[in-house]
Amino acid sequence: MQTPLFFLHRIVQCYAGRTVLNIDELAIARGEILAVVGPSGAGKSTLLRLLNFLESPTSGVIQFGGQPYGAAYPAPLTVRRQIATVFQRPALLTASVYDNVNYGLRLRGQSPQKKDKQNAVYQALTQVGLIDLAQQPARTLSGGEMQRAALARVLVLQPAVLLLDEPTANLDPHNVALIESIVTELNQRQGVTVVLVTHNVFQARRLAQRAALLLGGQIVEVADKETFFGDPRDPRTQAFIKGDMVY
C-alpha cells in the first residue's frame, strides 16, 4: 500500500486543559478528497489547523510525506507552504483583489509582473470568475466574491494539499457550484489532495471519495463514500446522515 500523505497517530489537542481532539489514527491518501463531517464543536476546524501545521498537537505525531512532526518538532515553513486553507469566513487584506491574490506569491518572493495579463494571479482570478474585479478594493466584494477571492489566493500557490473549512457555508447555490467545480477539477487534473470539513452531508457526498464522522473530537467512522453514505456501520453515522441530531 502507498504511504499516506498524512498519517495522524494518537493526536490529542487540548485548550486550557479541555480535550477538543483525540484521534487515535487517521490516514489521508495522496490525491484523494476526504470529507470530514460532524456537528459544530466536533473539532473539525482544530483538525484542519493541525493539518495545516498552524498549531502543534498537545501530544501525538502527524506524519506528512513520511516525516513526523509534533509538539517537539514542528513542521518547517517549506512543509507549511505546501498546504493551503480556505476558511469559512474569508478575511482579506485592505488592498485590491489582485494584491490579495498575489499576497502568497509575494511572501514567497515569486510575485509576477503585474503588466503581464497572462500571469498566475490573473489566471487564478479568471478561474474563479473575478477577473473583472481585479483592481477593485477587496472590501467592496460581496460574501460570495470574497470567498472566491480567498480560493483564488490559494489556487495561485499551487498547493499539494487544499484544506477547506466549511468553504460554502454562507454562499448562494451559484457560488457553491462554482467553488465545488473548481475543487473537483483541481483534484482530478492536478492531483491535489483535498480535506473538506463540512456539516453539509450533501456536499460531502457530492465531492468526497472518502468520508469521516468526527464527534466530540473523536473519529467515529471513516469509510469510502459508498459505504459511509450507503451502509454505515456506526449508528451515530447512520443518524447523522439521516439528519438526526447527533452530539
Binding site: L77, F87, R89, L93, L157
Partner: peptide, 10 residues
C-alpha cells in the same frame, strides 16, 4: 481571523 489566514498562506 486575518492574522491566522496570513499565517496559513505561508
Amino acid at each position: 481571523e486575518l492574522r491566522q489566514q496570513i499565517e496559513a498562506l505561508g
